[in-house]
Design a protein around this nucleic acid. Structure first.
Length: 600
RNA sequence: GGAGCUGUAGUUAAGUUGGUUAUAACGCCGGCCUGUCACGCCGGAGGCCGCCGGUUCGAGUCCGGUCAGCUCCGCCA
């Protein structure tokens, strides 16, 4: 028997056809001949007997090369290495007593090789194709195609597929039409930074990639399509986070002739359905609702995680005459009681103090409640009356610890809102298997843009004010409420929408309130205002961040885990090396020149 | 634009107060092995300690810078 190298053994599959997937081989197939194709997961070469765990997308099957069944095959199979690609034909047989593997779905059986083909060899992968190995993000992204072979990524891609199918099935049944909208579109003011695409045919002119299909979906309502949806890529040229990628996917939908209730009911039914179809969990509808101001008051954030307590209490009034000047002079003082948190050490408090500084806090006041006294750097400033009121407001008991934050309202809320999350994580208070949705409603229409010194749309400039707040647009914009709603799941904003403005008059007033001049409104949004003049139906909708929803359902802490080919935090692709410079000829065609081009 | 963490063999990590030849496990290569299943046993190879500079008799270790990955602030209607 001549010794052939692995490369010499490579063959084409020829007329071999795969009969089963590796996960399908079980006792029901006993005695049958099957043809499997896949990759070598593990090889256990005993010399006289070779076991290969063959992997395909669906699972693993043990195949056995035995000289008793095919001498040549057995001898050739010594060349097999991890990730080699092979096809085997063989017989499914029950494993001998005591040789079964209960950890493997197909562990009752094995496939005895009658004939096989080596379809391809493989370099030794830079990291093992196994879930239990933690590999650096850098390597995983550079060799993403190898990372995708791992079970975790395969599972996440399947989850994504199932979620998308569920959404389509649901919305199709509800009478929605899936319509595509342009990816090459118009740059608009407001919102995130646009990705620009230069126009070759019109030098100096640019398309923008859509931040969302917002205007087109409204135009589809104007186009009489009544119920639209799209699972659509959106682009925002802003810095990345664990839950943010420059391109991400929205489940976008819009309905004509509806009010808030219909959109919210439909949306929660859709989400309920997706969750049942993917992770087999049942949510109760209707989802709970909370006003924006209540969310800020009790959770500090507009995306409350309602899976645990640690609520914020306002104690501004209690300490307004305190001897502790920091409290007395503050615009707002809030507190979090951690029941039986007195064991938190000085060292841990120091870490938390460092943590809150990220949010602009100067420090972190705390009190440990003991049986006989209050242990705290600030206890000496607090009078009996103040202490009594704090006990009442916070429900204090011996063994508790209380954290305080005093200062500007925004800072206090943000700081304690984030501290609350930090504490919950640290103290393991988050029930990981819970899915707690909550609608946030009653958003303000505007928020003050400190940098631009003007009002900015809280949601977007097409969101309708409440009917009875219309006159506030000019007189008291800060009091105007929006017909907007966000859906928050486990403290993550997974969707948001609104009832839109559908008359040209109101839309023009909105632009005015935002400080957008008549001329600018005309040049940027003229087509919309014009369109609204031709019988626009009242309409509204919502858009969900598919990736974020999948992060929660897949119980992963990074958006990269649910995207096949994500970008790094610096917005690059380690696999393709994009973005790259382009030849000057290509730039010239576009009428572009790169300023201060560095020699490379 | 800013802050923090990380960077040592193919991979994951250890590396003490700055001190001789930089460890371990897995992987890889060679050999043995007919019931393993993350097979086992014997042997072997494998290092620009991210990069540049500085301090020092001497730097993986200290300092400055820089690059990359990650987390966060700003930003994200």
């Amino acid at each position: 028997m001549s010794e052939l190298t692995a490369e010499q053994l490579i063959q084409s599959p020829g007329d071999w056809q795969r009969s089963h997937h590796c996960a399908q081989t079980d006792l029901a197939l006993l005695g049958q001949d099957v043809c499997l194709m896949g990759w070598v997961q593990y090889r256990r070469d005993h010399g006289g007997l070779i076991f290969i765990d063959l992997r395909d997308r669906e699972g693993l099957t043990q195949v056995v090369f035995s000289p008793d069944h095919n001498l040549q095959a057995h001898q050739e199979a010594h060349v097999l290495r991890p990730e080699y690609v092979l096809a085997v034909k063989g017989t499914v047989r029950e494993r001998p007593e005591g040789m079964r593997n209960p950890n493997l779905k197909t562990g009752q059986i094995e496939v005895v090789v009658k004939d096989w083909k080596l379809l391809n060899t493989a370099k030794t992968p830079p990291f093992p194709i196994e879930d239990r190995i933690d590999v650096s993000d850098h390597l995983r992204l550079k060799y993403r195609y190898l990372d995708l072979r791992r079970k975790g990524m395969t599972r996440n891609l399947r989850l994504r597929h199932e979620a998308v199918q569920s959404v389509r099935n649901f919305l199709n049944a509800e009478g929605f039409l899936e319509v595509e909208t342009p990816v090459l579109t118009k740059s608009t003011p407001e919102g995130a930074r646009d990705f620009l695409v230069p126009s070759r045919q019109h030098p100096g002119h640019f398309f923008a990639l859509p931040q969302s299909p917002q205007l087109f979906k409204q135009l589809l309502m104007l186009g009489g399509q009544e119920k639209y949806y799209q699972i659509v890529r959106c682009f925002r040229d802003e810095d990345l986070r664990a839950d943010r990628q420059p391109e991400f996917t929205q489940i976008d939908l819009e309905m004509a002739f509806v009010q808030e209730e219909q959109v919210m009911r439909l949306a929660e039914d859709m989400i309920k359905n997706v969750i049942a179809d993917t992770v087999n969990q049942e949510l109760n509808t209707p989802f709970p609702r909370m006003s924006y101001s209540q969310a800020l008051d009790t959770y500090g954030l507009d995306r409350p995680d309602t899976r645990f307590g640690l609520l914020l209490h306002d104690v501004t009034d209690i300490v307004k005459d305190s001897a502790f000047k920091l409290f007395a002079s503050a615009e707002m003082v809030k507190a979090i009681r951690v029941a039986q948190g007195g064991h938190i050490s000085r060292r841990e408090i120091d870490d938390l103090t460092e943590y809150v500084k990220i949010f602009g806090a100067r420090g972190l006041a705390w009190i440990k409640i003991k049986e006989d006294q209050w242990h705290s750097p600030i206890a000496k400033f607090l009078g009996e009356e103040e202490k009594q009121q704090l006990v009442r407001e916070l429900g204090l008991e011996a063994g508790d610890i209380v954290f305080f934050q005093a200062g500007g309202a925004d800072m206090v809320r943000t700081t304690l809102g984030n501290l609350r999350l930090k504490l919950a994580e640290k103290l393991d208070l988050i029930p990981e298997d819970r899915l707690d949705p909550v609608w946030i409603t009653d958003f303000p229409l505007f928020e003050w843009d400190q940098e631009e010194k003007r009002w900015a749309a809280c949601h977007h400039p097409f969101t309708s004010p409440r009917d009875d707040d219309r006159d506030l647009l000019e007189s008291a914009p800060e009091r105007a409420r929006a017909r907007a709603y966000d859906l928050v799941l486990n403290g993550c904003e997974i969707g948001g929408g609104s009832i839109r403005i559908h008359t040209p008059e109101l839309q023009s007033r909105m632009f005015q309130a935002l400080g957008i001049s008549r001329e600018e409104a005309e040049s940027k949004f003229g087509f919309l205002i014009e369109a609204l003049k031709y019988g626009s139906p009242p309409h509204g909708g919502i858009a969900f961040g598919l990736d974020r929803l999948l992060m929660i359902l897949g119980r992963t802490d990074s958006i990269r885990e649910v995207i096949a080919f994500p970008k790094t935090q610096k917005g690059t692709c380690l696999l393709t090396d994009a973005p790259t410079p382009v030849p000057s000829k290509q730039l010239a065609e576009l009428g572009l020149r790169v300023r201060d081009e560095q020699p490379r």
